[in-house]
Write a protein that binds this DNA or RNA. Structure first.
Lengths: 208, 208
DNA sequence: AATCTACAGTAACATTTATCACATAAGGAA
DNA sequence: TTCCTTATGTGATAAATGTTACTGTAGATT
């Protein structure tokens, strides 16, 4: 195939690519699918080859706090961390743009660490980058106020989708920041007055 | 030695223990020492054999937000994650109870992953448990209010020191929760009224 | 003892965020 | 069109947290 694993994971060795193709199973999921729920047992390591996934931390009261995005070429760190023990997932993963994912049985995860240097490096780098991302999340909620967090949220969304239009309702944004719709509406209005965004129904246009 | 590495890291193989003793250097640091600063380059993987360390995330304004404790038998995940690349530290580590740490050159980290199964498992388990701990931190600041966070803070402190007296000033607690001293004083007073603690100068006694 | 300093208590007020109530508007369905 | 549902705007108010200012007090220092 043209859009092959090798293009999406350029650092993987040729042998590793073959091994993945032999042992993994490529599956498609539509936007909206919950790929993994909090508390579920993890049976596969997940590599994203197409589309986008959002990773959430769920609160007891049903809150869905957005942690970060997963994109093609990346892997779910949680699904790697919960290795042989088949631990429970601490997070919820939702497809936000139709995805193709390579599902790799967990026992391969460990095996390949020893056999494929490029897999080892990928896993370590995945740990590192996800850990850093979570630390950035901590920064945001520990040190910043809601208006700054909202700006960060919008910027990240725009980076992820590669566009300047955010097609989300105020309610959806509020849920992902664990606040209320009114707060988001008001803060967005202030941002519009400052010339940072243009507000339309179900769409926020980023101006700078 | 009696209080040997083998006792502190019971899952390490005998060969691994010898290798660590050959390549690592055991160093002592007094309470109060900053073992690692945000932005510093990491040159060693750190194993704790005695004492206690607190890991903080630093804010731009000088805030010191407490993430978690490190205790004997544990390792600094950040110092493992920043492998060969010798990345900058994203955290600050402060000794809170005189420690002995085994400093292991970063290149060993990678090497041993291939050569020692018990090292590999220790590293993976370190990633997993630290990741989970950070996720719990996110929970706390994303979903809980300051009074609940304070109770959690006190409980964690008491777990870490194995005692029911918290010998910290209100100001120190406030700094680690990134709030102000007055807020902590108020909340502690309310907790005292609810019969949860007894307040003394420089000491908070946990009653339940 | 007199003084100093860090810590703690607390009132008053400001600010931020949450909640409630309701109005209006946009877009789809009938 | 008219009706209906969902999204948004906004005022009023409450609650939580942050800030300022001042008091008292315990313990150390002189």
């Amino acid at each position: 195939m043209q859009n092959s694993l090798k293009n999406i994971f350029p650092n993987f060795s040729t042998e590793l690519i073959s091994t993945i193709e032999e042992n993994g199973s490529l599956q498609d999921f539509e936007a909206g699918t919950i790929l993994m729920r909090t508390g579920q047992y993890i049976k596969n390591t997940v590599l994203i080859t197409k589309g986008k996934i959002k990773i959430y931390r769920e609160g007891e009261d049903g809150g869905e706090f957005l942690m970060y995005y997963l994109q093609p070429g990346q892997a779910c760190a949680i699904s790697m961390i919960c290795t042989a023990k088949s631990e429970k997932s601490q997070i919820m993963a939702k497809v936000v743009e139709d995805v193709s994912v390579m599902m790799i049985p967990l026992q391969m995860m460990d095996k390949w660490m020893m056999e494929h240097r490029s897999w080892y490096e990928f896993v370590i780098e995945t740990y590192r980058s996800r850990f850093e991302e979570v630390l950035e999340v901590v920064d945001n909620i520990a040190f910043r106020s809601m208006d700054e967090r909202l700006e960060f949220y919008l910027k990240r969304h725009s980076d992820a989708c590669g566009c300047t239009e955010v097609k989300l309702s105020h309610q959806e944004i509020a849920t992902e920041l664990n606040t209320s719709r009114e707060v988001i509406s008001r803060l967005l209005k202030k941002m519009e007055q400052r010339g940072l965004v243009k507000l339309n129904r179900n769409q926020i246009e980023l101006l700078r």
